[in-house]
């Protein structure tokens, strides 16, 4: 690269493709993080403040507390699955950003 590296970074940073990538990432990561944090803290809060509700049996002796705790594992796997699927699109977008920059810097 002949030009100063800071111009290169800022040219990428200002490019529409890069801005679209960041927007798309934030649009997924912020709501997904808020959701899993809320879902996770619902467990200690419900167990701590509404223990009688959590002790209610649902399937035979298995109660809400255990089922809700177990559901956390599937919640985590599901969000991870959604994230990986989205991230595949971001990889393509990031590749375009880099290729576009290589094209611009050569010409």
């Amino acid at each position: 690269m002949n030009e100063s590296t800071s111009t290169v970074w800022s040219r990428i940073g200002q490019s529409p493709r890069y801005k679209e990538l960041i927007r798309s990432k934030r649009a997924f990561i912020f709501p997904a993080s808020l959701f899993f944090i809320a879902y996770y803290f619902a467990l200690p809060v419900l167990v701590g403040w509404w223990p009688e509700l959590m002790k209610k049996p649902v399937f035979g002796p298995v109660n809400i507390a255990y089922l809700f705790a177990l559901s956390q594992f599937f919640m985590a796997w599901f969000i991870a699955f959604l994230y990986v699927r989205k991230a595949g699109e971001w990889d393509k977008q990031a590749k375009q950003v880099i290729e576009n920059e290589e094209f611009v810097s050569k010409h």
Binding site: W9, S10, I12, G13, Y18
Partner: peptide, 12 residues
């Protein structure tokens, strides 16, 4: 910040 962002988000 912009440099770190570009690098960490695109892998460049």
């Amino acid at each position: 910040f912009e440099e770190l962002q570009v690098r960490s988000q695109t892998g460049l």
